[in-house]
Design a protein around this nucleic acid. Structure first.
Lengths: 110, 110
DNA sequence: TTATTACATTGCAATATTACGATTAAATAA
DNA sequence: TTATTTAATCGTAATATTGCAATGTAATAA
């Protein structure tokens, strides 16, 4: 298979999984950390900063863009990518709700 | 390939990615939510609750166990799985640090 | 002992992901 | 126009993931 049966899960469960999936590769984590640090960037920087080939970085950027976590503006021959703070906040709320489930926990049962 | 080049990333980046990866499937999200709700469980429950075959559930439970997020005790012929609250807290701190990067953000650049 | 019950493991097919060389596209520079 | 620069896309190889039928294992029940 290799294909998740998304139809049997709730929208919330699928959305958490989608967000988590995009963070499930260290290159994308590194790209986001770098974008937060610089508050601006171009793809070329990332190729040197991260240490993966240009097509690979471009592919990772595309996935981040598809989820809306970053956005890019063409500036001459280069592209300026940066965090989409609005969408980041929305994602953060969803993920934090999921992570905070344990606040009602009474301790381990076994 | 299909193989992440983990050696070029920091331990933190790799760890965030590992945690995120395990949340990157709705079945594992659903399993964790169910465990939080019940505060105890056995695998059989999950097969009915989630709607995937028993070997599939067992496999997802194994991944959650490998990361230390759940633990299981044999009880007769069944197994009692539950959240490992200590490890969940540690994971939560790591993930929240990552999600909270935007607090210093000055707004979108593009 | 011989079921039965509950879960784990194995093996496999279908699909997804990761990475990169080669190429393309689009903007600027000469 | 013809480079050059920068990033996207295409094609492909290697590996990983998902899901399940079949089987194995270990504890209890008959």
């Amino acid at each position: 298979m290799g294909l998740a049966k998304t139809e049997i899960f709730t929208d919330e469960q699928n959305q958490i999984a989608l967000f988590a999936k995009v963070f499930g590769h260290p290159a994308r984590v590194a790209i986001l950390q770098y974008l937060f640090k610089l508050n601006t960037c171009i793809c070329g920087d990332l190729v040197e900063e991260i240490g993966l080939a240009q097509p690979t970085i471009s592919q990772h950027l595309k996935e981040l863009k598809n989820l809306g976590l970053i956005k890019g503006n063409v500036e001459g021959t280069s592209v300026c990518y940066c965090i989409d703070h609005d969408n980041w906040s929305k994602m953060k709320e969803t993920m934090q709700n999921f992570l905070d489930q344990d606040i009602s926990g009474q301790g381990d049962c076994c």
